[in-house]
Simulated scan of single mutants.
Amino acid sequence: MTTSDALLTEDADGVRTLTLNRPEAYNSLTVELKEQLLAALRAAAEDADVRAVVLTGTGKAFCAGQDLKEHVGLLQAKDPAPLHTVSEHYNPMIREITGMAKPVIAAVNGTAAGAGAALAYACDLRVAAESSSFLMAFANVGLGPDSGASWTLQRLIGYGRAAELMLLGRKVDAAEALRIGIVGDVVPDEELTAYVQTLAAKLAAGPTVAYSKIKHVLNVAAQSSLDGALDAEDAAQTALGGTADHAEAVEAFVGKRKPNFQGK
């Protein structure tokens, strides 16, 4: 495990776990933490030994979003930094998560609000602890959504529900998050870490090159016509048909054995 003041990084079984580590501040995002998380996401994307990524938090919160104390302090000091954090930090983080050629899982251990909730929405899979909740609180402080939430949330739950949660700033508990499609599973708090690590290890042992193409074609399809989606699928299948993982899967099927994927 590597440790910084604000972010913990641990590798096991091909899985890199990034843990936001400001529990006393509900893992709210200071400039320091945003810069560390962005660098960690980039490093995970580039490391061939990392085949799946988990994003989680310590304490009672997954991430409460922007650290408002720091934000207000900088604004009062006439520091322009808060005006650029979306372009310099939040947008690049979301692009790293959604564009990463490997699965990213959000293990939502508690409150996920604002940009913190948006980080979870951007992940490929979301597993929530029973005590967790989601809150789109931007309107409550006179702001609009950022960190890709306007794009990701409505693709998870539809325009109507996304608009309701953003306009009204209504908190969603874990049970409702599961019912409306924000998360894929809810587990007891004490089981979250083990459950997600098992899931992530399973993905890390899978055909990760195929996972990268699946993420790509889903993103293309979300923004294109049917013809565009068909073309993206065609290109992906052509490329994947020549991979070692596909050949291994075919050989394993014929040989009635479990495939040994290498992510190549």
Rank of each mutant, 00 (worst) to 15 (best):
L153A: 10
M166I: 15
G144K: 03
S150I: 13
M136V: 09
F138I: 06
Q154W: 04
E130S: 07
G160E: 06
G160N: 02
A128W: 00
C123N: 08
T152Q: 03
Q154I: 07
A128D: 08
S133M: 05
A139Q: 14
D124P: 02
V141P: 01
L165N: 09
L153R: 02
S150G: 15
R126I: 14
M136A: 15
A129D: 03
N140F: 00
F138W: 14
Y159D: 00
S147G: 15
L167S: 13
G144A: 14
L156Q: 09
A137N: 13
C123T: 08
G160F: 04
G148Q: 06
R126M: 09
Y121I: 07
A128N: 04
N140T: 01
L135C: 05
D146G: 09
E130Y: 02
A149H: 11
R155G: 03
Y121M: 14
R126Q: 07
G142K: 12
A128P: 02
Y121V: 10
A128M: 06
L125Y: 14
I157Y: 05
V127G: 13
A163G: 03
S133G: 13
N140G: 03
A129T: 04
L125A: 11
V127D: 04
T152M: 03
S133Y: 10
S147M: 14
G160R: 02
S132K: 00
R126T: 08
F138N: 14
